[in-house]
Design a binder for these strands. Structure first.
Lengths: 182, 182
DNA sequence: ACTAATAGTAGCGAGTCGAAACTATTGCAA
DNA sequence: TTGCAATAGTTTCGACTCGCTACTATTAGT
């Protein structure tokens, strides 16, 4: 097996897995984009729930992200909150109905669970490599969780973000931040 | 790391990789669906290039596949050929313009190439496991290449398909077949 | 000969996609 | 302080995907 065809095989497998996963998601109440946006909002911290952050994370434009968020808002799965300090910015918080939808497990997650511990770990590692390389390739942000960020400082009450200069609770530190940096 | 959160991590990585790859593909002349359909047609053997086969492979409906193929046809990247033996069925063959488009390598393939030999192999293996499990989950076909099929018989001139009862050339045997079975 | 099954298509409504044009703020510098 | 420029978000456009249902041919099986 040459290096070239191995690349092609992996590319095909990823494409195929993508299509199969998307097809599964269409069977649910939301389309794949809406599901991805909702899932992101459920894991992003309160500084990372604006349309532009969603656009960045989903690798799309602000315009498209805005539309998807409006669609989710019409379905009352998320609720918009306007900022007091900056009248331009908006934060979308997930509602309890939105959280309920995320509880339904997909066909893909069921399949991932069947992998043994070691396969699972190496798969996670190589996927992480690919995602990071893709992000670097397009100049995107890493979007990691606070506690793995270089701006995060552990305190006795929880944590502190040195960039935004705000204290963080324990649950905050486990959420995704758009300012995340390694 | 519990088994549950590891599953979620992998799911997120796959979703993210999917979005990043799709975003890359939108920069090209085709949208992700059209690209996937065109790519499939370039690798499928002559018995596997009908709209219903494309639908099966892309995990979508015949209606949707039909539309995508019409869009590719309008762009003259594929050309329809009606069958003589069965007046209902149609085969779409890729044109030289279509082949040219497939030559442009994506950002993802560049990234995959940076993986070392061993990582690459284990990634391919685990992805294969996932795809096969997903196919089984939804009752889909495996769509492998002829030479790995149980109906394939090697002859001195090339190969022979025992199911369709037709001789196969060397290049035929390396293409994807919708009747593929393990 | 009469059904059923199969192959493909058309049209519908909701929604995605990038791109471009647009409004409303906020930041910054002369 | 005024005067841009940058930023946040939205709207609209045209092309398209998506599942779905209804539809037309054609072929297969009884």
């Amino acid at each position: 097996m040459t290096a070239f065809s191995q690349t092609r095989v992996i590319q095909d497998l990823i494409d195929r897995l993508t299509r199969l996963n998307a097809a599964e998601e269409w069977n649910g109440p939301l389309n794949p984009s809406q599901f991805a946006a909702l899932s992101y909002l459920s894991r992003a911290n309160r500084f990372s729930r604006a349309p532009s952050h969603v656009a960045d994370y989903l690798a799309t434009t602000r315009g498209t992200a805005s539309q998807t968020l409006k669609a989710l808002s019409r379905k009352e799965l998320i609720k918009e909150t306007r900022s007091d300090t900056d009248k331009r910015s908006i934060r979308y918080d997930i509602t309890s109905e939105g959280n309920d939808i995320l509880k339904t497990t997909s066909g893909l997650s069921g399949v991932i669970e069947t992998l043994d511990q070691e396969t699972s770990q190496t798969l996670a590692d190589s996927l992480k490599t690919l995602v990071l390389a893709m992000l670097q390739h397009r100049g995107g942000r890493s979007f990691g969780v606070c506690k793995t960020c270089r701006h995060h400082q552990k305190t006795d009450t929880g944590g502190y973000c040195q960039l935004l200069e705000v204290p963080l609770s324990g649950s905050d530190a486990g959420q995704i931040c758009h300012e995340h940096a390694l």
